[in-house]
Design a binder for these strands. Sequence first.
DNA 1: TCTGGGGTCCTAGGACCC
DNA 2: TCTGGGGTCCTAGGACCC
Length: 359
Amino acid sequence: MKKNTSIIAHLDMDAFFAAVEERDTPRFAGQPLVVGADPHRGRGVVSTANYPARRYGIRSAMPISQAWRRSENARLQGQPPVIFLSGNYKKYSLVSESIMAYIQTRIPLIEQTSVDEAYLDLTFTGSFATAQILCQEIKNYIARTQRLTASVGIGPNKLIAKIASDFQKPNGLTVVRPEKVIDFLNPLPLRAIPGVGPKTEQVLLQLGLKKVCDATQLPQSALESILGKWGEALFKKIHGQGSATLHAPAPPLSVGSQTTFPLDTLSAMYVVNQLFARCEQVFRHFNRHGFHSFRTVVVTARFNDFTTASSGRTLPRPANTLAKLKKSSLQLLLPFLDNRRNPQLRPLRLIGVRVENFN
DNA sequence: TCTGGGGTCCTAGGACCC
DNA sequence: TCTGGGGTCCTAGGACCC
């Protein structure tokens, strides 16, 4: 008798925030568009670039000033400039809720991992062919009712589904049957493996490891000696092993808030006011989650050279008042405003506060 | 016109305890 | 009559993800 294979899908909305804006404003259709920070004021990054903007080399997390430069270069060459929008996150989350609610009417078990992504357990369909039809129906529904596209990957576990959803973006539907997993992974760059970021990629490239099939030549022990415990996890991933278990949403382990100042500063009054505003925000969220107390407070400071330091304290007993949060975070902040934890008295560009250890 | 904000997980050293 | 050895908690930093 054949072993029971799980069938997992990963659904990922294409350029979600930008696609919603494009949909809702007809004159934006087909134009390069970026949702993110205001390129004319302040500091920040690209949140989402639509596909025309990506053709200018604009990517998520790119400094908005750099995106602006790319837009200007394109404009000087007679191409349409980028439309920059600050984003309406309430709207995006309503669109997301509507899509996820529909999916739940079709599929008993789903795990939403962000505003625009979810895993779907399609094992109940009994075959990859039926699962594919169901996913196509969901894509059709999203296209018809929301005028948005999603990319879907289907595989025997969450890892393969996730990689597959990224394989043919946008508007893709990629099915990787269990017997095709190795062939699917082998030619991919190692960067396509979730968890391999810029640093790990660099380490692996130095060793001549560029593609998955380069790394699968190595025994697990070699990856472990290169990457430590993460090497063991990576070994499993490049061999296609992953979990097929979907998880219910769990309460957060920490709640934080941070802000980058418009200008770097060492003004104690300004920074303390900003810190207290972050404390109030954190305290609102802490209460909204229904937690009774927190026991650890962490303050983060980022200096004008972009180095980041944090200082935390676990209280002798759980606390649950805004006053206590402000008092603790102020004590943790002060060393960043003088020589104790800021040797050259570098101006601060960011301050943040986070609470952990809930009850 | 340098580099957001909200998170999770892992590591490593020191304190502390039995 | 040189420095045991786990286990757990705490702190700081870093990689990564959306």
